[in-house]
């Protein structure tokens, strides 16, 4: 029996689809049992979504009314819906748009940019209407499983799809990135904050050296690829199992690590550092939406 797989992209960069193709040999093994019935970034056909889909991978956040309709249609036709990538699972980098007014953005794009030329009006046809908020997939429809990551790791995609094909329940790691990190742990608190362009000491914990590494609050499964190469974690895999809100948890943790110099350092964009990928699903954004409604 072949499994009917569909993939779909909403407001995103198609990077998750590239990650799917990047599974390489594992994908070839999967394709023995899988029939790819709908996938516009790979097959390049935008025909209507076929019926009776077994597994659907949905990439990107819900930003326009078109996305919303597509998400609902996919939910009706798919038995198992997976939020594919951080945009779909938590709102992603797109979620930071919630810190701005969407109508002001529309006004800037269609009225104030120079390249618009003579026709300064919002098009009423061929372009979907932008929603007031950037939503994650689970705000619109019920989601059965998430594959986090920006982009998701090919090994993990293959593992999840393989588990589904074998009839098992897929699972994600419940640990944090620090649990997988090979760097030497230091107990000393940092004495000064360091920026990403500075060169770290090799094989020593980046957070202890003063780099803002989101490892403690981030879900494991990436084998700590960034920190082990000297690049601080930005938290693309969303909150770890025991973390309620990634941004707040990191704020909490960093206060304990900070010394005097750090305390005086004013993070110019606290939100985009601590809640880069999860702002649209954070406690803070939840409150902001409710304040705005009233």
């Amino acid at each position: 029996m072949t499994v009917r797989l569909a993939t779909m992209g909403m407001s995103g960069c198609s990077g998750c689809h590239i990650a799917l193709l990047d599974t390489g040999v594992a994908l070839l093994d999967l394709l023995k049992d899988v029939e790819l019935v709908y996938s516009y970034p790979i097959v390049d056909v935008k025909n209507p979504i076929p019926d009776n889909i077994d597994v659907a991978l949905v990439e990107g956040s819900v930003r326009t009314d078109h996305d919303q309709e597509m998400a609902k249609e996919m939910r009706r036709k798919a038995k198992f819906l997976i939020a594919f990538g951080s945009c779909s699972a938590f709102g992603g980098v797109n979620g930071l748009a919630n810190t701005f007014d969407s109508q002001a953005g529309v006004k800037y794009v269609y009225y104030e940019t120079r390249s618009m030329g003579e026709q300064r009006q919002v098009p009423s046809e061929h372009v979907p209407t932008i929603l007031p908020e950037n939503l994650r997939l689970s705000d619109v429809v019920k989601v059965d499983f998430i594959i986090p990551g920006c982009p998701p790791f090919p090994d993990e995609i293959a593992k999840v799809l393989g588990a589904l094909l074998a009839g098992e329940t897929p699972s994600l790691s419940t640990k944090s990135v620090c649990d997988e990190c090979p760097l030497e742990q230091l107990t000393a608190a940092p004495t000064q904050l360091r920026r990403i362009y500075e060169i770290p000491e090799p094989n020593k914990c980046l957070l202890s050296q003063g780099f803002i590494c989101m490892g403690p609050a981030t879900r494991a499964g990436c084998k700590a690829e960034c920190p082990s190469r000297g690049i601080p974690c930005t938290g693309c895999r969303g909150p770890a199992e025991t973390v309620w809100d990634q941004g707040v948890a990191m704020l909490d943790a960093l206060a304990a690590l900070e010394e005097k110099e750090l305390a005086e350092f004013k993070l110019p964009r606290i939100t985009s550092t601590f809640a880069k990928y999860t702002y649209a699903s954070s406690e803070l954004d939840k409150i902001r939406k409710r304040v705005k409604q009233k």
């Binding site: 810190t99 704020l251 206060a255 606290i270 409150i287 902001r288 705005k292």
Partner: peptide
């Protein structure tokens, strides 16, 4: 208390951005 102060100072800034 010092940790609490740092947390609350930053949280105050965050609350300003969401209208509280």
């Amino acid at each position: 208390n010092l940790h609490a102060e740092k947390r609350m100072m930053k949280l105050q800034k965050w609350l300003e951005t969401i209208g509280l």
